[in-house]
């Protein structure tokens, strides 16, 4: 079967790049599953997109990020890039404390003291640090300004659309709310492998 050019173009319009053989196999599988009932192009496109959300971009090997992004100290990224979040961690708080919380082994007694309260310290505002990939190039994304659609419970493998213009310093994208659109999905092998606990453990 020939690659469905219209689906390919439709994916590109969403900044999604996939290899031809993957797309071919995907469409074949969908047709089998649905016994060729998906006649409308919209329906087929939608089904392919669903599959893409659940695929592991590391396996697709279809990079889209420019190479200079990580080699240059400072780089302005423009345009849209559909990427995968491999993991994320809040870098505004100590990982050790976060890990105790995840493990449920926090103990309030550790805070009990007869000393007067320490001088006031600003309350940290969350800053998520995302490990992003296009399947080949790994890049980090920092929550430079608050991004409400992100949270610590996002599953590994979730897909995200990064929309320029974004400044990238030393391989770190400085993300603001309108640079990020959460697409959804997950990768079950990554979900099993990368629990919040192991992400923190790695950070530690």
């Amino acid at each position: 079967m020939r690659v469905n050019e219209s689906t390919k173009a439709w994916l590109r319009s969403k900044s999604i790049y996939v290899p031809d053989d993957w797309l071919e196999a995907c469409i074949e599988w969908i047709n089998n599953e649905t016994q060729d009932k998906l006649q409308l192009p919209d329906q087929l496109n939608g089904a392919v997109y669903e599959q893409w959300l659940l695929s592991d971009l590391h396996e697709l090997q279809s990079p889209c990020l420019p190479e200079q992004l990580i080699s240059q100290r400072k780089y302005q990224l423009n345009g849209g890039y559909a990427l995968q979040i491999d993991s994320l961690v809040d870098v505004s708080k100590p990982y050790y404390g976060q890990m105790l919380k995840v493990k449920g082994s926090e103990n309030e007694n550790v805070k009990v003291t007869a000393e007067p309260p320490a001088p006031w310290e600003p309350k940290p505002t969350r800053m998520l640090m995302l490990k992003l990939t296009d399947g080949v190039t790994e890049v980090q994304g920092m929550e430079y300004r608050q991004i409400l659609c992100l949270n610590e419970k996002i599953k590994p493998g979730t897909k995200v659309l990064i929309k320029g213009s974004v400044l990238c310093r030393n391989g770190v994208l400085m993300l603001k709310a309108d640079n990020v659109q959460l697409l959804g999905g997950e990768v079950d092998t990554l979900v099993e492998e990368l629990t919040p606990h192991s992400a923190l453990q790695q950070a530690l």
Partner: peptide
């Protein structure tokens, strides 16, 4: 003057803002 973010546990995140 102290930083309203107080501190970050990632060197590159802090560095990006510092360079800024």
């Amino acid at each position: 003057f102290s930083w309203k973010r107080y501190r970050l546990f990632d060197h590159f995140a802090c560095l990006a803002i510092y360079e800024q």
